[in-house]
Design a protein around this nucleic acid. Sequence first.
DNA 1: TTCTACAACTTGTACGGTCATCTTAACAAG
DNA 2: CTTGTTAAGATGACCGTACAAGTTGTAGAA
Lengths: 369, 369
Amino acid sequence: MTQESGKTKYYVLMEELKEAILSGRIKAGEKLPSENQLSEKYHISRHTVRKALSILGQEGYIVAEHGRGTFCSQRMGHLKQSKNIAVITTYISDYIFPRLIQGMDRVLTDNDYSIILKNTANSRTKEAKVLEDILTKDIDGLIIEPAKSQILCRHMNLYGLLDKYQIPYVFIQGVYSQMKEKPHILMDDCQGGYLVTKYLLERGHENLLGIFKADDFQGQERHKGYVKALQEAGYSYDPDRVVWFHTEDRKTKPGLMTRLLLDQGLPVDGIVCYNDQIAVSVVHVLREMGKNVPEDISVTGYDNSVMAGGDVSLTTIVHPQEKLGEMAAELLLEKIREVPEEKSQIPRLIQPELIVRNSVKDRRKKEEN
Amino acid sequence: MTQESGKTKYYVLMEELKEAILSGRIKAGEKLPSENQLSEKYHISRHTVRKALSILGQEGYIVAEHGRGTFCSQRMGHLKQSKNIAVITTYISDYIFPRLIQGMDRVLTDNDYSIILKNTANSRTKEAKVLEDILTKDIDGLIIEPAKSQILCRHMNLYGLLDKYQIPYVFIQGVYSQMKEKPHILMDDCQGGYLVTKYLLERGHENLLGIFKADDFQGQERHKGYVKALQEAGYSYDPDRVVWFHTEDRKTKPGLMTRLLLDQGLPVDGIVCYNDQIAVSVVHVLREMGKNVPEDISVTGYDNSVMAGGDVSLTTIVHPQEKLGEMAAELLLEKIREVPEEKSQIPRLIQPELIVRNSVKDRRKKEEN
DNA sequence: TTCTACAACTTGTACGGTCATCTTAACAAG
DNA sequence: CTTGTTAAGATGACCGTACAAGTTGTAGAA
């Protein structure tokens, strides 16, 4: 027989049976040979057989029924299913998180999973602590929003452990640059930039100005969408009509440059801003200069933050928060069920939505039709 | 010996040893008697002793070391500590829940606990399902906001199971009438009513009108606070100056009665309303009658709902949401640590806070000082 | 003093058997 | 066809024994 030397007899039998169950040779609910049969077949005492069976019983692979026999456990294969999913976000009550978690909860509850909620307060040290903690628990999967910063991730080894334990995980909102190939769901910032720009162009704007952040991924993407919309509409892309700013000068440069360009006589009837914050500061500058929004110049924002609903009433971009949660949960379920990559129906990018308010004027000439 | 009839020998020994560990008679790290000593002492075979010890080993109470002996597990007492707390609310992303959960998370994370989040969508059937699910998991405690309705709780047996498994639980926001003696943290509605009333009185109001809901606990309590503030200020309580309404006529009666009483010539300079909804409808009635708020008559609300920030800008009552979460978590921790009731420092009532907006006018005569 | 060998004690593995209790199916009685 | 009995076969609970293997303290050698 397959009696490897060095191992104990009960251990050999135990492993043999476990392998039979895992491989499907013994199906769920099926009856195993009786203790006496096993003891005969393997030439070991019944006591030793019982020892092996008791281990499998502990681990949940089999269930013994007094007087009837021993049966393979109902829940197929790796019974390790705890039906718990860990969700790690940077915050809980702020920003989009409540609705995000709401979306995940809907999908996961429908599939009989529970959420273990953790937050990192956007700190790397806390993220490491949380991950360590999570590893001590029984979870079937993990959805994580990485703590910000482009610095390389120093607790890669923790993610390595997740791989080792075969716990699937899904990133949302962002991905560490070293893990770009890991499953993730991001906001389609390119599409967002495209949407606002297209909206302005469709409403007859012909002299656009773009203001984007140079030192982050989102800025690059939104700019990409801006360019795409321009080219699609047949306009040539003019680099002089784009203002690039950085984290350090984000509070001053967009406003100053807008004022400068306008003073130079550059014709502008619409400004695409990196986000709501920039848009609001631009609007204030325009008002100081005696320009009205949207009558003289239209302005768009991004993020649909609280300021977008304030005294400015910005047309802006929002991402469907619950949808993101649902998609992340569904992607994770696919990973848990080991759905092959090529069969997946879930898009990796979440489509942003345009929120129309009063910061854009329709400049189309009413001559057609 | 204590050998109860009916039980098996190994079970008796197992329980005896477990009790010794739990009670502290065998301390953490201490060496147990050897298998042979136990088998002699209890007049059972060594095999039976081993069976008992193996169960305690599985459950983590003891650790055997080959050649040295068997030792009481390092982690003190009931190691059953999973460090998981289940939190069941009616909703996740709506109303106060994000901040509530935030508060709990702060306290629980500080104490190395994790939150398993569940929601009932305010449905009794779902609550029962969630409770059943929770019972299959490893949790050290439970915070639950019961699904609404005064109907008697049909799944009492599920709570009975919690008691049986000695899982402590804390109610928030509400308590089932049959479980009034269970630990809970509620909003102090009496104090809320007291606060708004006192605020009006302190600002020189002398002819108050109260509008309360008759068929719920909160209405009774808020009215109680209203009366208390009046008496404290030396005013006699006039039942004719209180309008009671019910769920059915909540949309019409408050407005109609206000109009009626004012038309009768009742002098009124301030109205304490059951909640923001009532307050807003009352304000609209007053405006229709040509009265200005707050110039002619002051109005207060309750709940600080979205309407309170709208066109009316109500002075109202809000409860500190995070604080409630923190308190509930701390109360639960006390229960887990078995802090005796009389030593508890945590108040069972959460103190509401006054939010001052523009619906109350200062009517004090500026003669003093 | 230090090192080594050994005895004593510990848990781990494995064997053997006995009796109790439960399930099921076959069979006989009504 | 139903009901009750019985026997076979399953797991569960004990018992006793033997030997393997790891740990520790100690007596004796270097």
